[in-house]
């Protein structure tokens, strides 16, 4: 996916992705990525967690605005709690 992201970014569109593998991202170096610690098949969380899914998107938009160095992979851990307020606190950074 990082290869596709690189090509879109190179056409002049700002991109950000969710990384499910730091190992792959460190090799492919997408322009901006956020590693959330969420499991494979669940980049935005779990079924029915609509608020949390939206919070992950908000988080990506905050990092899109704040990451200033090409190839940065921001590392987070959203796995500790299903508590929506956790993602909410992170989003308040923006």
């Amino acid at each position: 996916m990082g290869l596709i992201q690189r090509i879109i970014e190179a056409t002049g569109i700002a991109t950000i992705s969710i990384s499910l593998s730091k190992n792959i991202s460190q090799k492919v170096l997408p322009p901006r990525a956020v590693y959330t610690g969420l499991p494979l098949g669940h980049p935005l969380g779990f079924p029915g967690q609509t608020f949390r899914q939206k919070q992950v998107l908000r988080l990506l938009l905050i990092y899109l605005k704040n990451l200033n160095s090409p190839g940065t992979i921001a590392e987070l851990d959203l796995t500790d709690s299903g508590d929506d307020s956790v993602a909410c606190d992170i989003c308040s950074l923006g």
Binding site: M1, I4, Q5, I8, T11, G12, I13, A14, T15, I16, S17, I18, S19, L20, P30, L40, G41, P43, L44, L57, L60, L61, L64
Partner: peptide, 15 residues
């Protein structure tokens, strides 16, 4: 295609 659509932000999600 995204460029011709004047898209400003692309969010990419893996699986």
């Amino acid at each position: 295609a995204l460029k011709s659509d004047h898209v400003d932000i692309v969010i990419l999600t893996p699986a």
